[in-house]
Structures are given as structure tokens and as C-alpha cells.
Design a protein around this nucleic acid. Structure first.
Length: 264
DNA sequence: TTGTGTTTTATTGCCTCC
DNA sequence: GGAGGCAATAAAACACAA
């Protein structure tokens, strides 16, 4: 437990009065005469009350110069080794304990500020991530909707075609698969130059579409929607778009996520 | 002028380190 | 066990609106 001895109290009182004198001396520099007169009259009043009460032990604020010097020292090193404490105390006309207390309180203030700064940074990060998440969620909903529509359309087409095939030209299961694969291959090779395909899959054959959906149904698709249907591109995305490194960077706390990939 | 909120200086009690 | 740091708190000083 740290307690003050009577000599400490006395020393504190001495420091109070000395700092007051210092204040009187220093505060007269650079002020107007009126302001100086006001300060002097104020101090005279204080002296009077102190004389009357004798034992008045008022808390004194440090002078601007003292605070400036302490701040400067704090910037250099926020911890105070004994030698520096003594030197500073001597230079500023304060008790070493006062210097120590000032540093202690200053560290506490700095810590509070630091916490505030960290909170602001974290909040900004959170807001950015939330925005990102909301966008992805909306996109996901829209894609799911489109997928369901396409599935329904396919089911209809399949029902029609199987009905007519049964009636006109029955084909074996293996032959059917070969047909799908060849069409898929053709689709995969030619879709870049196929304007119909680029145009939201209007006019695609039901087998081709079904094949693509089977390939990609279980995948999470990120990007700007169903503008281009490319199974090999989907595979590339799996391999490259979400490499470990990038997925880590995407959710990195150090760097706020951007949406440039999201809104090309 | 006064009530009230904020800032600054100082104290207390506990903890850690040497 | 003493010195020093920290968190919590008290209290004086200060700022400011009403």
C-alpha cells in the first residue's frame, strides 16, 4: 500500500505554492494588460482566502508550460524511469510523485483513446462486411429464383420431349447419354461464339441445359449472375477464385473488403 | 448565476516483479 | 518486502447552456 508520509504532504504543499508562483510568473507573458490585471486580482483573492483558512489544500492544475513539457516527454517514452522522473520534476518545479501521477493518468487517457480508435476501426470493418454479406445474400436469392425457374422450364420440356420420343423413335438409355455428352462437349466448345447462349440461355436444347444444371446445381455461384454459362469456367472458378489465399484475404480484418469484384 | 457534465489531479487498493 | 504499474474512484477545476 502506498501512503504519503507527513513530509510528503508538506512537500506537496510546497509544490502547490511553488507551482502557483510559477503560474503567476509565466501567465503574465503574452497577455493583454486588462487580462493580466484580472489574473492578478484573482490571485490576490485566492491568497486572501488561503491566508484566512491557513490549511487550505487546493488541487492545483499544472501550468500550460508544465503540461507541454510533460506531453513532449510522454511522446518520447510513455514510461518513466526514476532518473527521468527526478530530472523532469526538477526542471518543472514539481514533486517527482506529481510527475509520476501525471504519467500514470496520461497513460490511462491514452489507453482510453486507443480503445476508442480500435472500436471505430472495428465498427467500420463490420459495416463493410455486413454490406458485403447483404449484397451476397440478395444475389443468392435472385440466383436461386432463376435456377428454380429454369428447372421448371426443363421439367416441362423434358415431359414433352420424352412423350414425343416414346411415340416416334424409342432410343436406348446408353445412346441417350452419348447424345447428351456430345452435345455438352459441343456446347462447351462453342458457347463463346454462340450469341443465343450468351443471351440468358434462350433457345438452348433441353439436354444441354439439363446437363449444365446437373453440373452446377450444387455449386455456389458468385459473380454478376447467369450472363455466361460455361461449365469449364465454373471449374476454373472452383480452382482459382476461391483459392485459400484469396478467400482469406476476402475476409481479412486488416483490409476492408472491397466490392470491385462484385460490381464490375 | 447556477446546475450539470467533463477534465484533470490525486488517492487507494491490489497486483507483479525483482 | 518495497517499488512501481494499473483500475477504480474522489474531488477540485473548468466549460457551458439555460
Amino acid at each position: 500500500m502506498k501512503r504519503f508520509s507527513s513530509s510528503d504532504s508538506f512537500a506537496a504543499l510546497v509544490s502547490i505554492s511553488s507551482s502557483k508562483e510559477e503560474k503567476t510568473q509565466k501567465s503574465t507573458q503574452g497577455f493583454t494588460r486588462e487580462f493580466q490585471a484580472m489574473l492578478e486580482s484573482l490571485e490576490e483573492e485566492e491568497d486572501y482566502t488561503e491566508d484566512v483558512t491557513h490549511t487550505t489544500e487546493k488541487k492545483r492544475r499544472l501550468t500550460l508550460d508544465q503540461v507541454k513539457a510533460l506531453e513532449k516527454n510522454f511522446e518520447v517514452e510513455n514510461k518513466l524511469e526514476p532518473e527521468r522522473k527526478l530530472r523532469l520534476a526538477e526542471e518543472l518545479g514539481l514533486q517527482p510523485r506529481q510527475v509520476a501521477i501525471w504519467f500514470q493518468n496520461r497513460r490511462a487517457r491514452w489507453k482510453t483513446k486507443q480503445l476508442e480508435r480500435e472500436y471505430v476501426a472495428l465498427k467500420a470493418n463490420y459495416e463493410a462486411l455486413k454490406l458485403n454479406y447483404d449484397n451476397l445474400e440478395r444475389q443468392n436469392e435472385s440466383l436461386t429464383l432463376q435456377l428454380n425457374e429454369l428447372k421448371a422450364k426443363l421439367r416441362e420440356e423434358n415431359a414433352d420431349s420424352s412423350h414425343s420420343v416414346k411415340e416416334e423413335c424409342p432410343v436406348s438409355e446408353s445412346e441417350n447419354n452419348v447424345s447428351v455428352q456430345s452435345q455438352s462437349h459441343e456446347f462447351s466448345d462453342n458457347n463463346n461464339s454462340n450469341p443465343t447462349f450468351r443471351d440468358q440461355n434462350n433457345g438452348l436444347s433441353s439436354h444441354t441445359l439439363m446437363n449444365w444444371i446437373q453440373l452446377s446445381e450444387s455449386r455456389t455461384i458468385l459473380g454478376s449472375g447467369f450472363q455466361v454459362y460455361q461449365p469449364h469456367v465454373v471449374k476454373l472458378e472452383e480452382q482459382n477464385l476461391f483459392s485459400t489465399e484469396e478467400s482469406c484475404n476476402f475476409f481479412s480484418v486488416d483490409q476492408a473488403p472491397t466490392l470491385h469484384w462484385h460490381f464490375p
